[in-house]
């Protein structure tokens, strides 16, 4: 049939399965998430938006991984797909503590949920305006029967205290709080379930600089206290450098570079990473700017360029880049890059 021939509709979900390594809390292998585009007179799928297109990384227990990239590159979708929050995946593996997340039944998934939590981007729209703060934080705790009924109130007080909220805030509603306090409520809500792994989806982007520092310090303190693992999604590179141990740089749905924070910031290899880092404004009027300004904007993920996805904006584009998809290569131990420039 004609559908078979349309290259836009072919989903390549082959991957080499990984085996569980206990030092990693999360192993993501070639994860893909496509969203169908409906069109035509009789609506049918005419293509896919390849929001996450082959993301592979491992996350050690108790560490923080930063995920950076421009808006629309699929950072948030990657975070949500890992938590199984946006329907079924399209391909790949997500091993959480060695367990494939997408193989669980809904009952098993429910038991797994407290272990993996998310802090959403916008503290103004992610809190129900009709629930008092105590209920927002405590609802899931009660639902999952995490603490006995008689200890419930003390437990909520304890969590709120950890997150820098006072216990008399419990009966107030979200609109009575400032942005920084609301973000604290979001953090308290996630931590109340005693999670092992938290996806922080741009937790400080909506906040002022002085409040940002408070929230970042809070997240770091809580990580030490509860041995948490964070996946920190942000477009603010300076924040990511400060908080994370490893960094993944995303472009158009795939990781282009991945490694230790120190390695990546000291020695960025991929041309996109270089351009991204050179665009960070430095608060020093005398700082020299060797800025690589990228031309144009990010191509549409529904119709990504052939070969290397970055070749349309790359200053060092070669012939091979336009045809062949580059492979992931390990340049230094733990420092991976996806670029033809590093072919032998």
């Amino acid at each position: 049939m004609s559908e078979e021939k349309n290259p836009n509709l072919v989903i390549d979900d082959t991957y080499e399965p990984v085996t569980y390594d206990p030092q990693y809390i999360l192993m993501v292998n070639n994860l893909k998430k496509y969203f169908p585009i409906k069109g035509g007179l009789i609506p049918h799928t005419v293509g896919y938006v390849k929001a996450v297109d082959g993301v592979t990384f491992n996350l050690k227990r108790g560490t923080t991984m930063g995920l950076v990239g421009e808006s629309g590159c699929g950072k948030t979708t990657a975070g949500r797909t890992i938590l199984r929050l946006s329907g079924e995946k399209t391909g790949g593996q997500v091993l959480f503590n060695g367990q494939e997340v997408y193989d669980l039944s809904s009952k098993e998934m429910r038991a797994m949920r407290p272990k993996m939590q998310i802090i959403f981007q916008d503290p103004f729209s992610s809190l129900s305006p009709r629930l008092p703060v105590g209920e927002i934080i405590g609802e899931a705790v009660r639902e999952h029967n995490l603490v006995p009924k008689e200890e419930f109130n003390d437990y909520i007080d304890q969590i709120m205290d950890d997150c820098g909220l006072q216990s008399f805030h419990k009966d107030r509603y979200p609109h009575e709080f400032s942005g920084g306090q609301r973000q604290r409520i979001c953090i308290a809500r996630a931590l109340a379930l005693n999670p092992e792994f938290v996806v922080c989806d741009e937790p400080v982007s909506a906040l002022d600089v002085s409040i940002q520092a408070q929230i970042i310090n809070l997240l770091e303190d809580l990580q030490q206290k509860h041995n948490l693992t964070y996946l920190f999604i942000s477009h603010d590179l300076s924040v990511v450098e400060h908080i994370s141990d490893t960094v993944g740089v995303m472009y158009l749905g795939s990781l282009v570079e991945y490694g230790e924070t120190v390695d990546i910031f000291r020695n960025p290899l991929h041309p996109y990473t270089k351009a991204l880092f050179s665009a960070i404004p430095i608060p020093d009027p005398d700082a020299k700017m060797n800025r690589i300004v990228l031309e144009g904007s990010i191509p549409s993920p529904a119709n990504p360029p052939k070969g290397c996805k970055f070749h349309t904006r790359c200053a060092m584009c070669k012939e091979i880049c336009k045809e062949v998809v580059p492979e992931q290569r390990e340049i230094e131990p733990g420092h991976y890059v996806v670029c033809h420039l590093f072919d032998q």
């Binding site: 600089v209 002085s210 520092a213 970042i216 310090n217 770091e220 450098e241 400060h242 910031f265 430095i282």
Partner: peptide
């Protein structure tokens, strides 16, 4: 304000945060 903004290339253990609001 300057101290509470993390700067690329300058590692600090803990960010300074202006207390209160």
């Amino acid at each position: 304000l300057m101290a509470s903004k993390p700067v690329v290339g300058k590692q600090v253990d803990k960010l300074y945060s202006i207390p209160g609001k």
